[in-house]
Design a protein around this nucleic acid. Structure first.
Length: 429
RNA sequence: GGAGAGGUGGCCGAGUGGUCGAAGGCGCACGCCUGGAAAGUGUGUAGGCGGGAAACCGUCUCCAGGGUUCGAAUCCCUGUCUCUCCGCCA
């Protein structure tokens, strides 16, 4: 959510930033509602002040035993009471309207974010590792002989429909090992706090991290009205919702391994084969709550944490900064990390690391007490570290051998009980 | 599912119709004390919104929304959340 005062002070800067997102003249309606709202507040408060003063006089008259004055003042107050209430309602409605307008606008990109319309305008920041070469035609993950038996889409469809998978045996084990490896690395080496959060949340949490009100159709809701999280960013970021915390509590760094649920409402027909895009998937998510002055450094740090996982696994990747047209609703800057998938002969997103500035903090009302003793909004960041299912795909495709087996990354060995390979028969060896 | 209790400031906790934005404690800030620290001690310390260059002023807020009343943290209604006991259950 945006700061109406900042917009009021410099509407041109705000409009220029929003124009980069293709939203023209964003400030004019905001400012006119704001002006009406402030005028209404002024009127309402003046009326209210008069009423309060009268109430005091009435009390004094009563105490003095002056019945004549008491009754006269009572009648006066009764006359203006209704008008005051109406005026207050007007002010309240305008305030709610302004809030709704502010809530529905996306965050403004930082100045260093490249302008563009879609993913083709994203700018590469970094390329790490070399895509492996094969002396045979590398397959997609679900075509690899040793993998097929442990990655069953038909049975999953019987249970749940399309975009679900039933993993078993070696594939399931490698998937689990990956998640554990990520979690252990983040907690033991990157200093993140391991967390097991609820994955079913209330409306308020979904508002806080901007899934609501605009993107309700992307998530699943229970009969009771709770939401299955589309990412544990929701649970982790909202830890500080409504809090006024001590400055020395910052930064706060969380990591969680959870299931995530997405309806994929807008992506019919995309990535329909394999387990690249599922309704249910596992993700190791990182969230940082920081002081405003350190969020940029934190953004780089978090990106490095995610990249480090791929580096240890020996996977080639590239990191891009998303252009204005490709960014999500709440982000001020987003780094996407794309891993090399030999089966698709391309880089595919495996992590997205965003800094949101105070955008979510305003929505959540998450503050800390600053140097001057005044509350300020915290900054929030989130990033995948990494998407476990997609990481599994990368490991399988990059490690595949001509016989249909898979050589697994050395870094994973401790989490696989010393095993290093999936055989063409689908067993761990 | 049944029964009950309760939501007060950054935190804990008093307060059952006015003089209450709210005692007291903790925490925090500044000072005194000290060689330095701890302890002790003094003073200060809620937030939102609106106005104002500022000082400051107004207004709202004791879970939320309604109601009673001249006046509500306090009484009534509804909602919501939390906790306890019983039942069921991983």
């Amino acid at each position: 959510m945006h700061d109406i005062r900042a917009i009021r002070e410099n509407p041109a800067a705000f409009d220029a930033a929003m124009a980069k997102l293709g939203i023209s003249d964003a400030s004019s309606e905001l400012l006119s509602v704001d002006e009406a709202r402030r005028a209404a507040i002024q009127v309402a408060e003046t009326m209210k002040a008069a009423g309060n003063a009268a109430a005091k006089e009435i009390g004094a008259a009563k105490a003095a035993g002056d019945d004549e004055a008491f009754n006269r003042l009572r009648a006066e107050v009764a006359d203006t009471k209704k008008a005051t209430a109406e005026q207050e309602q007007i002010a309240k409605d305008l305030d709610a309207k302004l809030r709704d307008l502010l809530m529905s606008l996306p965050n403004r990109p930082y100045d260093d974010v490249p302008e563009g319309t879609d993913e083709n305008d994203n700018v590469e920041l970094k390329r790490h590792g070399t895509p492996p070469t094969f002396d045979f035609q590398p397959k997609e993950h679900f075509e690899i002989k040793g993998v097929k038996g442990g990655m069953d889409f038909e049975t999953a469809a019987k249970l749940s429909g399309s975009r679900f998978v039933l993993m078993s045996g070696a594939v399931a084990r490698v998937h689990r090992a990956l998640a554990q490896f990520m979690l252990d690395t983040h907690t033991e080496e990157n200093g993140l706090t391991e967390t097991i959060p609820p994955i079913l949340v209330r409306d308020e949490a979904m508002y806080g991290t901007n899934q609501l009100p605009k993107f309700a159709e992307d998530s699943y809701q229970t009969r009771e009205g709770m939401w299955l999280i589309p990412t544990s960013e929701v649970s982790l970021t909202n830890i500080v919702a409504g809090e006024l915390i001590n400055e020395d509590y910052l930064p706060r760094r969380y990591v969680a391994h959870t299931n995530c649920f997405r309806s994929e409402a807008g992506s019919a027909g995309r990535d329909t084969s394999g387990m690249l895009r599922q309704h249910q998937f596992e993700k190791v998510e990182m969230v940082s709550i920081t002081h405003p002055t350190t969020s940029d450094v934190e953004h780089a740090r978090m990106t490095a944490c995610a990249e480090g996982i791929l580096e240890r696994l020996g996977l080639a990747y590239r990191t891009v900064v998303l252009c204005t047209g490709d960014m999500g609703f709440g982000a001020r800057r987003t780094h996407d990390i794309e891993v090399w998938l030999p089966g698709q002969d391309t880089y595919r997103e495996i992590s997205s690391v965003s800094t949101c500035g105070d955008f979510q903090a305003r929505r959540m009302n998450a503050r800390f007490r600053g140097e001057d003793g005044k509350p300020q909004f915290v900054h929030t960041l989130n990033g995948s570290g990494l998407a476990v299912g997609r990481c599994l795909i990368a490991v399988l495709e990059n490690g595949q051998t001509e016989d249909g087996g898979v050589n697994l990354p050395e870094a994973l060995t401790p989490w696989l009980g010393g095993k290093t390979r999936i055989t063409p028969e689908g067993t761990l060896a």
